[in-house]
């Protein structure tokens, strides 16, 4: 067993080493080498993946994982003093900024979808979400079907909107929907009773609820519209950088180091207010850790 694994490592090293050493740098790695800097795109309110802490500094689970990639880039290019620039992005501008070269790696809560893979590439899945709804406890809503005739808030430009429409059709329920500009604003629509539910990824809902004024007033429905994998986004058709990202993040997962990072953000108090999301890994997340992959939905 040990011998075969060792053999595998040696083989892999033999395959990778000459490729990395001999081949000309291309794409993102070439750009990083030439400019002496790597730019990470990050979200500002995707708790706990990438958000701003009390000092307006971007922190989070995805940021920690991205820094592992940065370390691998430093080692690969022999640039210990590599400058790391942080660029805030939104769900609407993250893809154009990736394509036009403003950011080199996106660390946030981006769903790895097959449609998006036509425009960009993704690193290994580091989280799997279920899309569901947050409602107020006293609303009496316990299933998604109870939303019939109610107003639903969601954030514009996220994959939950088409899903909701799809569910709407299959379940023959009739809902009105309003859009918030970002997750905080969508949650405000729910908190102010302008909407009966906020449909979004379960972990983002948990983040909004945990940080709200009265977390005990809200409940997240157990039903799921769909599961979606999250991955860090990079430019398409850039095999060198993609291999490096896969290697760096894959190593964190297979070595078990991922559990420490996961626990730090999902089952411990996190900044800025020391709230604990209490979100232990689901079976789907365990699966992604056990077998690192970049399969989209």
């Amino acid at each position: 067993m040990k011998a075969t694994r060792l053999l595998g490592v040696v083989l892999a090293a033999a395959l990778i080493a000459p490729a990395a050493g001999a081949a000309e740098l291309a794409g993102t790695l070439k750009k990083i080498k030439e400019t002496g800097a790597i730019t990470l795109g990050h979200r500002e309110s995707s708790i706990p993946f990438a958000y701003l802490d009390g000092h307006q500094k971007p922190v989070g689970y995805a940021i920690d994982l991205c820094m592992k990639v940065v370390e691998a880039v430093k080692a690969e290019l022999g640039m210990p003093d590599l400058e790391v620039r942080m660029q805030p992005v939104t769900s609407a501008n993250r893809i154009p900024l990736m394509q036009n070269g403003t950011i080199d790696l996106e660390c946030g809560s981006t769903t790895n979808s097959l449609q998006r893979q036509e425009q960009v590439a993704f690193g290994p899945t580091y989280f799997v979400v279920n899309i569901t709804a947050a409602v107020k406890k006293d609303s009496g809503i316990r299933t998604l079907a109870d939303l019939n005739g109610r107003t639903i808030a969601t954030s514009s430009g996220t994959t939950s909107v088409p899903l909701l429409k799809h569910y709407e059709r299959t379940a023959k329920i009739d809902v009105k929907e309003i859009y918030g500009r970002d997750h905080a604003e969508s949650f405000l629509l729910l908190a102010n009773d302008r909407a009966a539910a906020f449909v979004m990824d379960d972990i983002l809902l948990a983040g909004q609820v945990a940080n709200s004024r009265n977390p005990q007033d809200y409940v997240i429905l157990a039903e799921s519209l769909r599961s979606e994998p999250y991955g860090m986004m990079l430019r398409k058709d850039d095999p060198q950088f993609k291999a490096l990202v896969d290697r760096a993040v894959g190593a964190v997962m297979t070595s078990g180091e991922i559990r420490k990072i996961y626990a730090k953000w999902f089952t411990s108090p996190i900044p800025p207010r020391g709230v604990n999301l209490n979100f232990p890994p689901t079976p789907a997340i365990e699966g992604a850790f056990a077998e690192p992959n970049d399969r989209g939905v």
């Binding site: 609407a92 893809i95 430009g157 088409p162 918030g180 500009r181």
Partner: peptide, 24 residues
Amino acid sequence: ALTIGLAELTFRARELGEYTFSYF
């Protein structure tokens, strides 16, 4: 008006970009 969720022209253009990634 897109910031309060009204589905006007820029809102729709953004939405189109989000769904298809054909932003330009």
